[in-house]
Protein backbone atom coordinates (compact mmCIF):
# COMPACT_ATOMS: atom_id res chain seq x y z
CA UNK A 1 0.00 0.00 0.00
CA UNK A 2 1.28 3.34 -0.95
CA UNK A 3 1.38 6.25 1.35
CA UNK A 4 -0.78 8.15 -1.14
CA UNK A 5 -3.88 6.27 -0.01
CA UNK A 6 -3.23 7.37 3.53
CA UNK A 7 -2.76 10.96 2.42
CA UNK A 8 -5.92 10.87 0.33
CA UNK A 9 -7.89 9.38 3.17
CA UNK A 10 -6.64 12.06 5.56
CA UNK A 11 -7.28 14.96 3.21
CA UNK A 12 -10.75 13.79 2.33
CA UNK A 13 -11.72 13.10 5.90
CA UNK A 14 -10.55 16.58 6.91
CA UNK A 15 -12.58 18.03 4.04
CA UNK A 16 -15.59 15.98 5.07
CA UNK A 17 -15.25 17.18 8.65
CA UNK A 18 -15.41 20.78 7.49
CA UNK A 19 -18.31 19.96 5.24
CA UNK A 20 -20.14 18.42 8.18
CA UNK A 21 -19.41 21.55 10.21
CA UNK A 22 -20.90 23.63 7.41
CA UNK A 23 -24.02 21.49 7.29
CA UNK A 24 -24.37 21.77 11.05
CA UNK A 25 -24.03 25.55 10.98
CA UNK A 26 -26.67 25.91 8.29
CA UNK A 27 -28.99 23.55 10.10
CA UNK A 28 -28.67 25.41 13.39
CA UNK A 29 -29.83 28.57 11.64
CA UNK A 30 -26.55 30.47 11.59
CA UNK A 31 -27.15 31.54 7.98
CA UNK A 32 -30.68 32.79 8.62
CA UNK A 33 -29.65 36.08 10.11
CA UNK A 34 -26.30 37.28 8.93
CA UNK A 35 -26.57 40.80 10.25
CA UNK A 36 -27.58 40.86 13.91
CA UNK A 37 -24.66 38.80 15.26
CA UNK A 38 -22.25 41.29 13.71
CA UNK A 39 -23.82 44.02 15.83
CA UNK A 40 -24.29 41.87 18.88
CA UNK A 41 -20.63 41.00 19.18
CA UNK A 42 -19.76 44.69 19.53
CA UNK A 43 -21.84 45.16 22.65
CA UNK A 44 -19.86 45.23 25.83
CA UNK A 45 -21.29 43.62 28.90
CA UNK A 46 -22.87 46.90 29.88
CA UNK A 47 -25.61 45.21 31.80
CA UNK A 48 -23.33 43.53 34.32
CA UNK A 49 -21.70 46.66 35.68
CA UNK A 50 -24.53 49.05 35.05
CA UNK A 51 -24.99 49.86 38.73
CA UNK A 52 -21.80 51.86 39.00
CA UNK A 53 -22.10 54.03 35.92
CA UNK A 54 -25.70 54.68 36.79
CA UNK A 55 -24.73 56.05 40.19
CA UNK A 56 -21.99 58.05 38.64
CA UNK A 57 -24.41 59.50 36.19
CA UNK A 58 -26.92 60.56 38.81
CA UNK A 59 -24.15 62.09 40.93
CA UNK A 60 -22.94 63.87 37.88
CA UNK A 61 -26.41 65.20 37.31
CA UNK A 62 -26.71 66.32 40.88
CA UNK A 63 -23.48 68.28 40.80
CA UNK A 64 -24.58 69.81 37.58
CA UNK A 65 -27.86 70.96 38.99
CA UNK A 66 -26.26 72.39 42.11
CA UNK A 67 -23.94 74.40 39.95
CA UNK A 68 -26.79 76.07 38.23
Amino acid sequence: MSVIYVLLAISISVALAFFAAFLFSVKSGQYDDTYTPSVRMLFEDEVVNDQKPKNKKSKHNQTKSTNQ
Binding site: D33, T36, V39, L42, F43, V47
Partner: peptide
Protein backbone atom coordinates in the same frame (compact mmCIF):
# COMPACT_ATOMS: atom_id res chain seq x y z
CA UNK B 1 -30.81 50.47 14.79
CA UNK B 2 -28.24 48.82 17.00
CA UNK B 3 -29.68 50.48 20.10
CA UNK B 4 -32.93 48.67 19.39
CA UNK B 5 -31.09 45.37 19.20
CA UNK B 6 -29.32 46.08 22.44
CA UNK B 7 -32.34 47.05 24.48
CA UNK B 8 -34.51 44.26 23.13
CA UNK B 9 -31.84 41.69 23.88
CA UNK B 10 -31.68 42.97 27.43
CA UNK B 11 -35.39 42.72 28.09
CA UNK B 12 -34.60 40.52 31.05
CA UNK B 13 -33.52 43.67 32.90
CA UNK B 14 -37.02 45.04 32.69
CA UNK B 15 -38.79 41.94 33.91
CA UNK B 16 -37.36 38.98 35.75
CA UNK B 17 -39.81 36.63 34.03
CA UNK B 18 -38.09 37.12 30.69
CA UNK B 19 -35.34 34.55 30.37
CA UNK B 20 -34.09 35.15 26.86
CA UNK B 21 -34.58 37.44 23.94
CA UNK B 22 -32.93 37.47 20.57
CA UNK B 23 -33.38 39.94 17.74
CA UNK B 24 -33.36 39.08 14.07
CA UNK B 25 -32.61 42.49 12.61
CA UNK B 26 -33.20 41.81 8.89
CA UNK B 27 -36.59 40.30 9.68
Amino acid sequence: CSSCIWVLENLGRLHSGITSSQVDFPK
